[in-house]
Amino acid sequence: MFEARLINSAHFKKVLDAIKDLLKEASFDCSESGIQLQAMDDAHVSLVFLTLRSDGFDKYRCDRNLTMGMNIENLSKIFKCSSNDDTVTMKAQDDADTVTFTFESKKQKISDYEMKLMNLDQEHLGIPETDFSCVIRMPSAEFARICRDLSQFGESIVISCTKEGVKFSTSGDIGSANIKLAQNNNFDKEEESVTIEMQEPVTLTFACRYLNFFTKATPLAQQVQLSMSDNVPLVVEYQIPDLGQICYYLAPKIEEDEN
């Protein structure tokens, strides 16, 4: 028997918004410690790794480990039927074919939705522990803005991190664009700080399209952390307060001609 309850369905809605552009379907792995989801997009360019800790829920029970394959679009449809302040309860029997979502509104309204589970082929990827050359923390809204602005000019964004700061740049048919952010420790408002931990400078190129998918997680956290090293995927990390975290991995673009 699996049961998980959140006071505000809005939290879960935001999580869904953060993954639904990347994944059409995905498996939620439920265990005693919480719910995890690890999946690559169809093209195997990016990977989403979502963790929702059991203590982040108001009630959590998972007697046996269970994997629920779900169509994310349909799942979003169900959550669209709920109001933000509804309490949501997810329930599934062991070895069940379906999962139910119960929304309880403050006005004594109770709605039940049952959804069929799917069988999905799953590939679990081993993510090696990496010491990153650069770790950048910045306001998530700022990062979203930069990605959005730069994607008007070109298909890819070059992120280069040095001691002085971090530079986002792109170029395309109409011209080029550069945005520089300097380190800035704001002790009064920590969420507005830009901090950089750097071992050595790194410059990598990434597809705007994917970065814009990642920034859909912006409402979940005030800060975002970007970790980069040469020739390894970028990690974009959002800490969801009191509930867990969502990490995105993105393979860099590589220069041609090393056949």
């Binding site: 690559m40 093209a43 195997h44 360019v45 990016s46 990977l47 994997t67 082929d121 799953q122 590939e123 679990h124 990827l125 081993g126 993510i127 090696p128 890819s156 190129t205 597809a207 390894v232 995927p233 991995y249 393979a251 860099p252 673009k253 590589i254 220069e255 041609e256």
Partner: peptide, 16 residues
């Protein structure tokens, strides 16, 4: 440039 692929970086641990 060409887009890299993730499976080049990560190893598939298990596939169910």
């Amino acid at each position: 440039t060409t887009q890299g692929r993730l499976d080049g970086f990560f190893k598939v641990l298990s596939s169910t």
